[in-house]
């Protein structure tokens, strides 16, 4: 599995957990508009879980600018 696909799989687990949507499917193109319940506070919860999962810490400005799953992936993959 390439690195990006691996990240998407792990993100999907986090999104399902944090949004309480067990069958949710996400891709790098998913945005808050496509995903039920993904509002700005959900982003904070998701980021907290991502930070735990990937052992990273992001800057507030980065978190603020998240507009899609792809944005998250590029933050993680740096």
């Amino acid at each position: 599995m390439d690195k990006q696909a691996d990240i998407v799989v792990r993100l999907q687990t986090i999104f399902r957990e944090e949004l309480d949507l067990p069958n949710l499917q996400i891709s790098s193109h998913s945005t808050p508009d496509d995903v039920d319940g993904w509002d700005s506070l959900a982003t904070i919860r998701i980021v907290a879980a991502v930070e735990r999962e990937f052992d990273r810490e992001f800057e507030a400005a980065q978190i603020e600018s998240i507009r899609s799953v792809g944005d998250l992936i590029s933050m993680i993959a740096v």
Partner: peptide
């Protein structure tokens, strides 16, 4: 401080 600034969390999420 980061979570207060980002989302007005009254204390750190952990």
């Amino acid at each position: 401080a980061r979570h207060w600034a980002l989302a007005k969390y009254p204390f750190a999420p952990e």
